[in-house]
Simulated scan of single mutants.
Amino acid sequence: METKRTLLAIMALCLLCAAVTESMSLTRIQELRCLCIKTESKPIHPKHIKNIEVIPNGPHCKNVEVIVTLTNMEEVCLEPSAPWVKKIIDKILASSKVPEPTPVA
């Protein structure tokens, strides 16, 4: 009887851990509020930027949010309407486009 309780407790703990870790990866996407309270509009040198995340507007937030992770792991929200931010986003979009195949004659 004791081993059944122990086994049941271990299984419950495993299920709890699995549920918590699964929800952690979706937290940023499913939050029903804007992530950026304050935005930065002054330029940041590209060598200091490690990652850029663009979150489109939606039911969670009416604003498009641009979040950069700096090389020192600090996260900064950028002003999406700033001209230098628009340039960066345009460059990312242009580099991610797949070129059309050229027809073989």
Rank of each mutant, 00 (worst) to 15 (best):
Ala18Cys: 09
Lys87Gly: 14
Lys38Arg: 12
Val64Asn: 02
Met24Gly: 08
Ala94Cys: 03
Asp90His: 02
Ile92Met: 04
Leu16Ala: 10
Ser25Gln: 14
Arg5Val: 13
Arg28Ile: 09
Ala12Gln: 07
Cys77Phe: 03
Ala12His: 05
Val68Trp: 07
Pro103Arg: 06
Glu75Pro: 03
Val64Arg: 01
Ala9Ile: 15
Ala9Asp: 11
Met11Leu: 13
Ala105Ile: 14
Met1Ser: 10
Glu75Lys: 09
Ile55Leu: 08
Lys38His: 14
Val68Leu: 04
Ile67Phe: 02
Lys97Pro: 11
Pro99His: 05
Val76Asn: 07
Lys50Gly: 15
Lys47Gly: 11
Glu75Tyr: 00
Pro43Val: 05
Cys34Asp: 04
Asn57Leu: 08
Glu22Leu: 13
Pro56Val: 07
Thr102Met: 15
Lys47Gln: 10
Glu100Ser: 15
Ala18Trp: 14
Glu65Val: 03
Gln30Gly: 07
Val20Tyr: 05
Glu31Gln: 06
Pro46Leu: 06
Cys34Gly: 00
Ile67Trp: 04
Val85Cys: 02
Met73Asn: 09
Ser41Glu: 00
Pro83Gly: 08
Asp90Met: 05
Glu100Thr: 13
Ile37Val: 13
Glu2Gln: 09
Thr21Ser: 12
Ile44Ser: 07
His45Met: 11
His60Arg: 15
Glu79Ser: 07
Pro101Met: 15
Gln30Trp: 01
Ile55Arg: 06
Arg28Val: 09
Glu74Arg: 13
Ser23Ala: 07
Lys50Val: 11
Ala9Gly: 10
Leu70Val: 03
Cys17Asn: 09
Met1Gln: 08
Leu15Met: 09
Arg33Ile: 04
Asn57Ala: 15
Ile52Thr: 06
Trp84Leu: 08
Leu35Thr: 13
Pro56Gly: 15
Thr6Cys: 13
Val104Pro: 04
Ala82Phe: 01
His48Thr: 14
Cys61Thr: 03
Ser25Ala: 12
Lys62Asn: 04
Met1Cys: 11
Pro103Leu: 06
Ser41Pro: 02
Leu16Ser: 06
Ile89Lys: 00
Pro56His: 04
Val64Pro: 00
Cys17Gln: 12
Ile52Asp: 04
Thr69Ile: 02
Lys97Cys: 00
Cys34Arg: 05
Leu32Met: 14
Leu7Glu: 08
Lys91Trp: 03
Leu70Ser: 04
Trp84Asp: 01
Thr21Met: 13
Glu65Trp: 05
Ile52Val: 09
Ile92Glu: 05
Arg33Met: 05
His45Gln: 12
Pro99Met: 05
Ile89Thr: 06
